[in-house]
Amino acid sequence: MFLKVENLEKSYKTGDSSVKVLKGISFEVEKGKICVLLGASGSGKSTLLNIIGGIDTADAGTIIIDGDKLEKMNEKATSLYRRNHLGYIFQAYNLIPNLTVKENIEVGAYLSKSPLDIDDLIKTLGLWEHKDKMPNQLSGGQQQRTAIGRAVVKNPDLLLCDEPTGALDYNTSKEILALLEEVNEKYQCTIIMVTHNDALKQMADKVIKLRDGQIRKEYVNEVRTKSQDLDW
């Protein structure tokens, strides 16, 4: 099993009180699969993604990625783990405003020992004619493509997407989802995608529904629906 999460717990302190946002989460994802984490706001899905991504820590429980236990890593090792294995995509594209599209993708490539071919990737992303533009010259969809390029160019084992289409319109969202599918197929990276859009469950290999910090439903789709065929 590529990713194994066991009894994950997490609380946040707000003033004098404490809120438990993850209450003993356990699940597994196979290598090269797409897993969608569904849930309403406050269900704990982003917290779960951040803990898997090593940018937040759990109070209890275990995460094993490709045989490595995350909780045993110190800050430096966690940083190295993110550098070597992870790609991150956020709802806000968070591009560096004074670097071009190509340079923003190079920011990801620089971190990797075996990066993908940048020009080839830019073509795959459909950004070839925009590669020398600055982020403020791009549409939202183009900016998110660039952000995907920056995450994917590292050739990561695991791609973590936090509401990647949350800020995009219907058509652009579908384009981005198609791109993620293509990346998944072409580069065989495992994708974990957090969304509150229920329709996206059909494009996943595995679906986990969260509510109040607990898994309410977990199932595997025998057949994935192509993102182009989704509707919401």
Partner: peptide, 8 residues
């Protein structure tokens, strides 16, 4: 984002 991607 950069730190999450592995920049130290």
């Amino acid at each position: 984002t950069l730190r999450a991607s592995g920049y130290t």
